[in-house]
Design a protein around this nucleic acid. Structure first.
Lengths: 205, 205
DNA sequence: GGCAAAGCATAGCAATGCTATGTATCGTGG
DNA sequence: CCACGATACATAGCATTGCTATGCTTTGCC
């Protein structure tokens, strides 16, 4: 009953936009379609305008973040894994700084909330694992501790990636997370070792 | 030897830009000077372009933040004062959300670092006061704890102001700061009371 | 008092996102 | 099988953006 739209065009434009974001080329309506053979109208057909492109980029960013967090293994030390989740979060933000800015700084849409929830859920699961392993007190609400860890990590990486703090300031993440996990009941010395282990591969770079 | 420029025009434009930012009107070259009688060229004479206007707005934001932090009194409970500094920081960000975004999300210039340093310095002083009062261990570096508190507060208010967290999530600031200050050596129960006292007037609103 | 340097006003430029209009193309109902 | 209608697509154009070029005006020093 009508001309069908080609899904390949949509993914092509999203991937191209992601590449341009990484290359720090300005993403404009015309520069996005330049050289691809598709016309400017395709952006309106498939995304409804440039806002739709940015929204798609945000979802792409959350997908990539979720994939990154999924690579964090579950070891015998759940607090270490929790710290590793935080480290993966920071590394993802530092590897895709402009995408990270697009995700949080630009207009955060309500439709993005679902994708952000996935991120949070992984943290909640990590806290629950640590609680089940007896590392945290029984009365700590996993969601609360997860939100607090998220806020701490997000603030740190924001101040480093697009703010005034130098990259070495990332090291503050260790005492930050340690303080949080200790406040949840973990043994201070043991917690410190766990967090440092989870952050081991982030700090040198 | 030349026509002198009128400083009043500069402050007029800055104040007008600040008003437009609060009113959420888009700040464009032409909308900024519309109705003021000054021509578009004045923006280039006094700011060198729109980038200069945004830079001036950032400095204005830091000035306002510093003024806000200066209103926090120094009581007999330095940990309470420290928490009150954090509360004032958050309240300032929530009262001027767009200005706050302009300060951190947009291109943070190296010239803004000085203004940001002032903010940090106030935190450092607060930590030093608490340390001198014996609330913190001797071996805590005031700068480190200040940076960590800053990151936690910044992350929390960012996720609330322009992110996915609801406003009630601000309450997480209390356990966050408490965890940090306890990790610095403060007594847990006493610290909790101090932080809650410092945040008292932030949480209801 | 005249001259040079700077402020200022107007007009115009390229680039932006978006829309209007016409054409091509596909899926479906008869 | 084919014609119709809906939708994708292409081109051109619009208003707006930041910025610059070009004169004109004003101001202050020799």
């Amino acid at each position: 009953m009508a001309k069908a739209r080609d899904p390949a065009i949509r993914t092509l434009l999203i991937e191209r936009a992601g590449r341009m974001l990484r290359t720090r080329e300005p993403i404009t309506l015309r520069s996005l379609v330049a050289g691809t053979g598709v016309s400017t109208m395709a952006v309106y057909t498939y995304f409804g305008g440039m806002d739709g492109v940015w929204k798609a980029l945000r979802q792409e960013g959350f997908t990539r973040l979720a994939a990154r967090l999924a690579t964090v293994p579950e070891t015998a030390d759940p607090v270490r894994d929790l710290a590793a989740l935080g480290a993966a979060y920071l590394r993802n933000a530092l590897d895709n700084p402009d995408l990270y800015r697009a995700m949080f700084d630009a207009g955060f849409d309500l439709e993005d909330a679902g994708a952000a929830d996935d991120t949070l859920h992984r943290l909640v699961r990590g806290v629950e694992r640590a609680a089940e392993a007896g590392r945290f007190r029984r009365d700590v609400a996993p969601l609360d501790l997860a939100v607090q860890s998220w806020a701490a990590g997000h603030g740190l990486v924001s101040l480093v990636a697009t703010g005034p703090l130098p990259r070495e300031a990332l090291a503050h993440g260790v005492p930050l997370l340690t303080a949080l996990f200790v406040s949840a009941g973990d043994d201070p010395a043991r917690c410190r070792r766990s967090v440092e282990a989870g952050w081991a591969d982030l700090l040198p770079g």
